[in-house]
Structures are given as structure tokens and as C-alpha cells.
């Protein structure tokens, strides 16, 4: 079955579901392919991370190709951390030439959090400039104004952090992303429906026409929630969820996390809070189908 281009999905589908998959460190693609085959027909697109958490891995474009080869629809995540403008443009031309037509434009995590902490952080562009750059390639020109022999046709996405504190500078930057022209947004993990609603209300007013997918990261223990609240920027797990996790019998944390995630997804869908969800369950991709089933999204 040929996958529906993500651009069409964004236009036509009422509730869009994407998931995140992470490439392996090394050349063995077996596990990646099994994740792709497990998920490709159940979701609208698979995002592939780009040296996620600044940990060196198989490239995003490589796993996007595996997704194409196996009949799925990839979203290539592109960060500004590791490449200058020549390298980023060259990568995008290559991806486009091989039918990878969706790109999520990100700044990228700091080098310091990864496994090559002495590397030179590039960040020659920022995410707003990267969105501008992809639109420029789509128009048939490169960043220096030269004509391209064959232009790209990317469907462009951006991220957002609705739970940031303070949120105003983040919203200002988000506005700049929207003004550059994006088709979809995949947010950082959100757990508080009111917070999500406030962000969606704000984003709708910007009138960018983009579809917004709420970020879902299952929390599988109270300890994880507390750790995330203390250490992971832009994430806030409310106390009610932490209490619920604390009251979960030992060994049932993952089950509980899946249940909470599914409940939140159902609420978003039933209340039509936004246009869909983006599920990130890195390291536990094989359990994503349980979330889809429990939230009624397993077609």
C-alpha cells in the first residue's frame, strides 16, 4: 500500500497521528526496520530524529530512506547543531531527490548533553532561519540566491514548547516560525490539557494555517515525572499525574504510562483540542501500538 503523502494527510485528515523513531548507533538496521514495519500502516508519518540528544547515530536521512523503502511516510528531523549551511542544503537536496518530502526544522540539543561533548557546536543557522532556508529551496533557489537545477518540495514543520517558563519569549519565537511559513507543528511533550488549550488558542490566532499535533511522551513512573519536571526543559508533569503514578503497583508503570497517554489522546481527540498527536516513546517503540489501541487510534 502506497502511503498517503503527509501534505495530503494534513489537508484531509481530521485527527493526524505521527510517531517518533530513533535510528540506531551503528550499521545494523534490523531493529529500525522492525519498528518501521510495526508502525508504518498505523500512523500517518514517522519522524526520524537527527542525532537525538546530541548522541551520534545513523543519520536521519538514512532512516527516512529505510522508511520509504519499506512503504512508510517519513518526516526528516533537521537540526542546526551539526552542519553549516552548505551541508544542510546538500542534505535537503539529497532527501528531496529520494522522495523524502517532509522536514521538521529544529535548533537541536546542546552538544553538552550528548556523547561527543568535545565536538564543535555549529548552530550556524537557527530554527527560524532553517524554515526560511527550506522555503527558499522550495522556491528553486539556494541560500546564496543561485538557481537550483531541480527544486525541493518540502512540507515544512516546526516545534513549539507550550509548557516553557517563561513562555512569552518562546511564543515570540514561535510566531517568527509561523511567519516564515510552516504547514505543521509538533509540540514538546504536554500533560496539562488547559496548558495545551491555551497554546492552541494562541497559535490559531496567528492564522498560519498550520496543523498542530500535541506532543505525547508517556511517563512511566513518579520518579521519571519528577526527574523530568526538574531537569527536562519545557516539560511540566502535573501533580495529579505524579500522584496517580505513585499509586501504581510496582511493575505496572509502563502499563500505567500507556493508559495515561491514551486517556490524554482520547481527550484531545474527543474535545477537538488540536489536529492530532505526535507520540514519542523512544526506546520503547514496540509498545506504541498499545497506546494507539488504548486511545482508539489503531485502525
Amino acid at each position: 500500500m502506497k502511503p498517503v503523502p503527509f501534505r495530503e494527510v494534513l489537508e484531509k485528515k481530521d485527527f493526524i497521528v505521527t510517531v517518533e523513531v530513533a535510528p540506531q548507533k551503528g550499521t545494523n538496521t534490523g531493529k529500525a526496520i522492525s519498528h518501521i514495519n510495526l508502525l508504518k500502516d498505523r500512523v500517518d508519518a514517522l519522524n526520524v530524529t537527527d542525532n537525538q540528544s546530541s548522541v551520534m547515530r545513523y543519520p536521519s536521512v538514512g532512516m527516512c530512506l529505510l522508511i520509504k523503502e519499506n512503504g512508510g511516510e517519513p518526516v526528516m528531523q533537521a537540526t542546526c547543531r551539526d552542519k553549516n549551511r552548505l551541508a544542510i542544503q546538500a542534505d535537503l537536496l539529497f532527501a528531496s531527490s529520494r522522495g523524502i518530502n517532509n522536514v521538521l526544522c529544529l535548533t537541536g540539543d546542546a552538544i553538552d548533553v550528548g556523547d561527543h561533548t568535545q565536538a564543535k557546536p555549529v548552530f550556524e543557522l537557527d530554527s527560524v532561519q532553517l524554515i526560511n532556508l527550506v522555503n527558499t529551496l522550495n522556491s528553486g533557489k539556494d541560500m546564496a540566491g543561485n538557481e537550483l537545477n531541480g527544486k525541493t518540495d518540502f512540507c515544512i514543520g516546526a516545534s513549539a514548547t507550550p509548557s516553557s517558563d517563561p513562555v512569552e519569549p518562546q511564543l515570540l519565537k514561535f510566531r517568527k516560525k509561523v511567519h516564515q511559513g510552516i504547514s505543521f507543528v509538533q509540540t514538546q511533550a504536554v500533560y496539562d490539557i488547559d496548558e495545551l488549550k491555551r497554546f492552541i488558542e494562541y497559535a490559531r490566532k496567528l492564522d498560519g494555517g498550520m496543523k498542530i499535533l500535541a506532543g505525547i511522551v508517556p511517563v512511566i513512573s513518579a520518579r521519571m515525572a519528577e526527574y523530568m519536571n526538574a531537569n527536562v526543559p519545557g516539560i511540566f508533569v502535573p501533580d495529579t499525574l505524579i500522584t496517580e503514578l505513585k499509586n501504581t503497583p510496582k511493575g505496572e508503570g509502563i502499563k500505567k504510562g500507556i493508559e495515561i497517554a491514551a486517556r490524554f489522546i482520547r481527550q484531545i481527540k474527543d474535545e477537538k483540542v488540536c489536529d492530532g498527536v505526535h507520540i514519542m516513546f523512544i526506546g520503547r517503540e514496540e509498545r506504541i501500538p498499545e497506546i494507539l489501541e488504548a486511545s482508539g487510534l489503531w485502525a
Partner: peptide, 22 residues
């Protein structure tokens, strides 16, 4: 800015407006 960004903060800003890196 730890990343030298020109158009606003990254998503890594910590609670209370602290830097992702430190």
C-alpha cells in the same frame, strides 16, 4: 546564548529562564 541563536530562545530554556547548557 549557548547556541548563538539570533531569532529567539531555543526550546531548551529551563524553568525560570535558565540555560539548557548550564
Amino acid at each position: 546564548c549557548g547556541k548563538g541563536l539570533l531569532n529567539g530562545p531555543c526550546g531548551g530554556t529551563r524553568k525560570g529562564g535558565k540555560c539548557e547548557i548550564d
